[in-house]
Design a protein around this nucleic acid. Sequence first.
DNA 1: TGCAGCATTTAAAGTTAATGTAAAGTATAT
DNA 2: ATATACTTTACATTAACTTTAAATGCTGCA
Lengths: 226, 226
Amino acid sequence: MDKTEGRILLVDDEADILEFLSYNLRKEGFDVKCARNGLEAMDISVQFRPDLIILDVMMPGMDGYEACRQIRNHPDLKETVVAFLTARGEDMSQVEGFDSGADDYIRKPVRPRVFISRVKALLRRIPQTSEDGSRITFGDLIIDKEKYVVIKRGIETELSKKEFELLLLLTSRPNKVFTRDEIFAGVWGNDVIVGERTIDVHIRKIREKIGMESIKTIKGVGYYFT
Amino acid sequence: MDKTEGRILLVDDEADILEFLSYNLRKEGFDVKCARNGLEAMDISVQFRPDLIILDVMMPGMDGYEACRQIRNHPDLKETVVAFLTARGEDMSQVEGFDSGADDYIRKPVRPRVFISRVKALLRRIPQTSEDGSRITFGDLIIDKEKYVVIKRGIETELSKKEFELLLLLTSRPNKVFTRDEIFAGVWGNDVIVGERTIDVHIRKIREKIGMESIKTIKGVGYYFT
DNA sequence: TGCAGCATTTAAAGTTAATGTAAAGTATAT
DNA sequence: ATATACTTTACATTAACTTTAAATGCTGCA
């Protein structure tokens, strides 16, 4: 019940701005945490594992650039997307910003709608489901398309063809609910006719192999992958 | 009329301001129309399809915020860029303004040259990143048709099939009162027969999930969504 | 105003329908 | 022929839905 659009860490020394931005982000379904300075940002990041960190450039103590550099040097955080918040007219500083490893620049004053779509665009480019070659990764689940194998927490399990195709269909759009009809069409094709319970049985087998939580049911509608 | 830079609707109850702004905008080649209040603004908008609506916050009758909300709820207008005109010192109102869906704030007194460049900046980003088709937004409520969930102020809640269908029906025409018969026909189909109280119970569940205010009752008639 | 009468709200109990599951049956491939 | 995958069956379980009934709240009228 608390699936979110993505985790975001806001870092700014001004409470107003934190409040304003976090309000707007939460409204869109993001899981937001705030930090007042670079140090705090690092601490929270290690725990919270944000998908995106939005850093104010000017902060007392460790400034945005330095914080960004540290993030890039931290083994667990270096993949995190980082965006800077800058006051108007700080354009020249962008050189240093990108140099320190920023992914984007957001100029103050912030306009909510633009801001939100910018954030969404940034998160979209996250290798949320990183796909290197034949493998797709979802958190602790790895699906290997070539070997017809899934690896859950390092435990490798073979999937049969139908199981695999069904899982691929569901994972092709995480969180989308696939109706039974869509599943039939996608996995069996429209002409093949099999009993209603067939899908359930395959779902059960998949759940057995990748964990119960991964596939959810909406009664009367269908299934979805998280 | 030669091709214009863009269509702009000005909404203000003070004729002076309308005249002043429209003069300056027309001089720059914009196609400008004016409205005296929120109601008039809605009427003209539907016909005129402005690219940008500039709303005074304080107006008799429907104020700017309410007008903005209505614009955002109107299927044909929700992509329109909206900017507020505010008197000096109304800063705190920005929260309500952005909440109601505004894209920008313009402070009075207006300086023509600044104003024009602001307007141009707003129009420049007209190809607004429109929300993906699977989600419908009503203020702080997001309905995701694919995921069978609603997001209210960032809190995601699953809906069951019936709840979801009922909510979709009501939201398909906000403010229209659906009679109980219409609801039966729309959600259950004309052949299914269930008791009178069934609808109420589902309405209650939905209210529980998206907030009491969202669905109103008209005694003896039915329900509507706002 | 106060009360009667009716409609809706609400919680909880009851029912139904859909899915979960194990195991047996059938097809397919090696 | 045998193993493996797939489907079907039949029963158990669960969540969704419906009904019930009591409480609340409106509306109009005396």
